[in-house]
Design a protein around this nucleic acid. Structure first.
Lengths: 207, 207
DNA sequence: TTTATAAAGTAACATTTATCACTGTTTTTG
DNA sequence: CAAAAACAGTGATAAATGTTACTTTATAAA
């Protein structure tokens, strides 16, 4: 079933490559909230998301702020960047919901990159994707106020999780956006009046 | 002399590769302030900085904000990411001072990446470097106030240009940090009192 | 040297965001 | 069910940043 996923997700991969990946990688389930990469750790695997959703965030000044979310077919590619140079991860990644990840050992990844341009190409595309995601986050922070960022955040999350009813606390939102709970509460009220969202008990409905 | 630069800067490059680069690339001088990449343009070259300094910035909501600076040996690597997929650049790059850049044609770059792992490796390292620079910028914006960001900005610039006396207007700083001139003036005064910087006529001295 | 022009300084005020201190409301659990 | 714990709502106030409108100063140009 890994084979099926790989063939579908990376149609350019040669059969031989897919077989090798199948052979040398581990499929691991991460429960919602479980750490996949922890900032400061050394990394031995390149994780590829088979299904589920991963949240990538960064800690600085005791603030944990969201960088972006990753979906099926994407990898925590920058963990690879670190491995490559024996450095520690400068971000964390946790399962946003129960997720299946394929863990490719780093030495094999290096090998495949040299041998298979199709593999190299995927790695490069992933690099690019992440850079763009991060750039997008940066734009948001600089150019938009919290109201707009919160709307964007909730809509992104709804899309990502495939539901309009989000089970998320104001505290968690506040962490992701690098602000405080009270601020989120206040803005949520504003947005409720504007009928962009609706606080539905302890859940948030994105309209 | 390109050969000398390439050999020195990328010691892992094979002689053959260096010769090919020498043969197929153009050395171009960019005057201070001249555009190297313009947001929205399609790109045909991968620029490598031989000497000088390049400022990379992004426009959103009619705000031009600084992403990071590039120095000798680095390339505007994300211009390559775009070429690769026939997309438009989502950032601009201008010469921060008179700079010599080596322009490698994209089709050749693709070719070298497949043929020479040493070349591929440099590309990957550049990707990583830029991601880290951008991540650093993002951290700055989220976790530090303008006072601290201004100090960091001025120190970085002083280091980059190799001088403690910066010829830069408050307006330009404001643009780079995504704020307004008046705000920079105000903070500059605060920092002058703290003796971190000194406004020396129309120049700024970093202490 | 005068004049024009661009840059910088600044006061006053507006807005946004942060923080504090507390209350009210769910949800969980013993 | 009652108590505890977690979460949410809110007023008051502070701090940071943005905006307006104007003055002053430095540099370039006539």
């Amino acid at each position: 079933m890994n084979t099926e996923f790989l063939t579908k997700c990376y149609p350019n991969f040669e059969k031989e490559l897919i077989q090798e990946i199948e052979e040398h990688s581990i499929l691991k389930t991460f429960k919602k909230g479980e750490f996949i990469v922890k900032q400061g750790q050394y990394i031995r695997f390149l994780p590829i998301i088979q299904n589920g959703c991963v949240k990538v965030f960064c800690n600085e000044q005791s603030i944990d702020f969201l960088l972006y979310f990753l979906e099926s077919g994407e990898s925590c590619i920058y963990s690879f960047a670190h491995v490559n140079n024996g450095e520690q991860a400068n971000f964390s990644a946790i399962a946003e919901r129960d997720s299946h990840l394929l863990l490719l050992p780093v030495d094999k990844v290096k090998f495949w990159m040299k041998k298979h341009p199709s593999f190299s190409s995927i790695i490069l595309n992933n690099y690019k994707k992440h850079y763009n995601d991060l750039l997008n986050t940066t734009k948001q922070i600089i150019c938009y106020n919290l109201d707009d960022r919160l709307i964007y955040y909730l809509k992104t999350k709804a899309k990502l999780l495939g539901t309009h009813l989000l089970s998320i606390s104001h505290q968690e939102i506040a962490n992701d956006l690098g602000t405080s709970r009270e601020v989120i509460s206040r803005i949520m009220k504003k947005l409720s009046l504007k009928e962009v969202v609706k606080q539905d008990g302890r859940k948030i409905k994105v309209l």
